[in-house]
Design a protein around this nucleic acid. Structure first.
Lengths: 192, 192
DNA sequence: CCTAAGTCGAACATCGATGTACGAGTTATC
DNA sequence: GATAACTCGTACATCGATGTTCGACTTAGG
């Protein structure tokens, strides 16, 4: 659904504006209704259903859209050089994305299957995974825990930071530093 | 509400069984309805409303009950000796509690205010906080990040482990070791 | 300029959950 | 054993959200 293939120009525009509105609305409130999203998009509720068969598919498309948008920002990160420094750079730019769309993710979790969400995240996750494996091969990162676990921990720490900011217990400027300091320490080999 | 004070004996029994059923039902499904909880408790739905004014109050009481139950289990942990080893012991016994009631927590998050949840968790959190501060004073734990942040990270890693187990990507037996290894590394002072 | 595609709002059917009301039956407790 | 507390089921009112249908209007695109 929502294939922009043969659709007319104004239909494509509608789909784009709906998608964008869905991302923004769900990023504010994970329980945003279709009505609210339609209103935010400046579009009738029926129009939304004209492009997306149901709410779940809309949330799916919104998450995919947000991830796709984030990808370009992640592509600019220099992953060469010392794995530790590269990871720091990667964290700096990806953590903000996580923060922004954390509510959107929650929306997805309550409507989409875990497998589906995992599939949607495959792209970004693989990027981190590769870097971790390289750092591991160079002896900079620890070797006694699975890479999937380490990647997950990084994710989890970022989510925690987002929660803390959201609760006004952490200043947004400091988050990046905290996360990097924590994750790098967690990734370091046991004996050092 | 649900004060067991002057209530009759059978009423107290009802409240107890409802509370227990609520904890179990919400631990399976965070969106469990009042009907489901009542059925699980072997009690009429109206009876539930006779003791708890609304669903939110019931969830609140259920979370409080679960935390109180966990407290006794946490009380047995020996927090003396090397902070690192004490933390390992504390993680081992508390992480399972987090796992079991992770769905319940999600239920609470969608119905209770963040402040309220924080208040309910004050007891267990303080326990960890104290230990971290001691380890910090002894130079075993890092000093360059706020204790609240460190405690939060530990929480966050445990939640992540629970998610992984729940998704069948992590064996329950290994979780404890993974968590301890990760958290201890994250807590170690930067230069070592 | 003609037609098909798209949009609109309003209305409708459905659904599940919440919370309340009632009346009759049970059971604790004094 | 009498009374007040408790429980039960059923029924009801309400609510909000979902998804569909309809008919009229607008607009893109050959």
């Amino acid at each position: 659904m929502a294939e922009t293939a043969g659709r007319r120009a104004d239909a494509q525009r509608s789909i784009a504006v709906i998608l964008q509105a869905a991302v923004e609305a769900l990023s504010r409130d994970p329980d945003a209704s279709v009505s609210e999203i339609a209103k935010a998009a400046g579009v009738g509720r029926v129009t939304v259903y004209g492009h997306f068969p149901n709410r779940a598919d809309l949330v799916d498309a919104a998450l995919a859209h947000a991830i796709e948008q984030g990808r370009s920002s992640l592509d600019e990160v220099d992953l060469a050089g010392d794995p530790g420094e590269a990871l720091t750079r990667l964290i700096d730019s990806s953590w903000q994305l996580v923060d922004r769309s954390r509510s959107l993710l929650q929306a997805a979790q309550s409507v989409l299957s875990p497998d589906r969400i995992r599939t949607l995240h495959a792209g970004p996750a693989e990027r981190v995974q590769k870097l971790v494996e390289r750092g591991r091969a160079e002896g900079v990162f620890r070797d006694d825990l699975p890479t999937e676990w380490l990647v997950g921990v990084m994710h989890s720490v970022m989510h925690h930071a987002a929660d803390e900011i959201n609760a006004a217990r952490l200043a947004p400027e400091e988050a990046g530093g905290y996360i990097a300091a924590t994750v790098l320490a967690a990734f370091r080999p046991p004996g050092s």
